[in-house]
Simulated scan of single mutants.
Amino acid sequence: MSAVQRLLTLLAVLAAALATPALAQEAAMSPWSKGDHASLRLIAGATAASGKQRVGVEILMAPGYKTYWRSPGDFGVPPVFDWSGSTNIGGLDVRWPAPERFEDGNGHSLGYVGEVVIPVSVQPADPAKPVMLVLKLDYAVCEKICIPVKGEARLWLEPGVTAVTSPRLERFEARVPAPVKLGPQKTRISVLEAKLDEGAIEPGLRLVLQAPPEGKVEDVFIEGAGMWSFGKPTLSLQPDGTTLALLRIVDRPKGAAGPIPFIITVRGKPAAIETRLDLDIPAAKP
């Protein structure tokens, strides 16, 4: 091979290398903050197209231990986030994966067993500058009894980092319920109807849900401002293919009546969904 041919070959290899995107690297993560039966850390994801930084709060628990969702159910306490030590933060949005339901004493609680990554979207105050994310988290882990845990973690986020991958964060981001409006959906679970179940012996809500072909409704969680509390849903498949969900009202704020805002979260296949709506609730009977 002549010197000219060797030079042309070298140039071709260099051009191919420059045209090939760099392989995505594992995203940055903080050291573990260890507590009793659980550890906490922050993990970063690629910067979103919107410019928001994607971050996950990872909690790893000892075998058999669990922690709680934003609405913990009959027992337990939700995590409390303190981001006040952070810098260059314009806004934060904690995005909760759909929880599991588990028996807890004489009732049911909602949360996560073994491991959870809670995704967080961070809007930098100045997108051109780095973000220092500092988290202090108060949370509880439970086996037979609940143990309070405190964790602290910090993570430096460079702006515009896209060539990274974070499989753990991405796996739990896929479990965050998709927001949908009341009414039929083509490819997602639908909330077709939501109203007070006037025919029930005890006050409750009546939901008509529909999953797409090969889909399935697995559980329903309802949240309302204040002291609203609902029992475990009774799910029944109807002849028309819809799923009827009946939920007893266990507790309600004193004097609550009229249009009441609720969040309905449905866990199932192909993915969880979340519907926010107002329901006309009459005053409780004396």
Rank of each mutant, 00 (worst) to 15 (best):
D197Q: 05
T47L: 10
A200I: 07
M29D: 03
N88P: 09
G111K: 03
K129C: 10
V4Q: 14
G107L: 07
W32N: 04
V266P: 04
G204L: 07
G51W: 07
A211E: 07
Y65H: 15
K129H: 13
I189P: 02
P212I: 08
D138C: 10
L237H: 13
S30A: 06
L135Q: 02
G35P: 03
T275A: 14
L110I: 09
L14D: 08
E214Q: 15
V164G: 02
R206K: 13
G215N: 05
A283T: 14
P184N: 08
W32P: 01
K129G: 11
K150C: 03
E170P: 07
L196Q: 07
A256I: 05
G241A: 11
T87D: 05
S121M: 12
S121R: 08
L169T: 01
G45E: 00
W228P: 00
L23N: 13
P184H: 09
A153V: 04
M1Y: 07
G76A: 09
D197T: 06
R188V: 04
Q5E: 13
L182T: 09
K144W: 08
D219Q: 04
D251S: 12
P212W: 02
S166Y: 00
E193Y: 09
I249A: 03
M132K: 14
G204K: 06
P253A: 11
P31I: 13
T275V: 15
A44V: 03
P286R: 11
E170V: 10
K254E: 12
G258M: 02
A48H: 07
Y68F: 15
N88G: 11
F221Y: 09
F172R: 00
M1F: 11
S190A: 14
L244I: 08
V208D: 02
A3F: 14
E193K: 14
L192N: 06
G91M: 09
E173L: 12
R188A: 13
P97G: 04
S86T: 03
G91K: 11
A3Q: 14
L7F: 12
S236H: 11
G160N: 13
L60T: 09
T234C: 03
E115S: 06
L192Y: 05
G151H: 00
E152C: 01
K150T: 08
T265F: 05
G255N: 11
L237T: 15
D82H: 12
G151M: 00
G107Y: 07
P79T: 04
I118N: 04
M29K: 04
K232A: 15
K195Y: 01
V131N: 07
A271E: 15
F75Q: 05
L133G: 03
A49I: 09
F75V: 04
G224C: 01
V217M: 11
I222E: 02
D240F: 07
R206W: 08
S121W: 13
G241F: 10
L40Q: 01
Q185S: 10
E218K: 12
I201W: 15
W96P: 01
G105P: 02
L244Q: 13
L244M: 14
D104V: 01
S229N: 10
A19I: 12
S190P: 03
A225R: 07
G226S: 04
K181S: 11
S33V: 06
M61I: 06
L196W: 03
K254R: 10
T187N: 09
G268Y: 00
T265R: 10
A200L: 05
P184I: 06
I147W: 08
P21K: 02
P239R: 09
T162A: 15
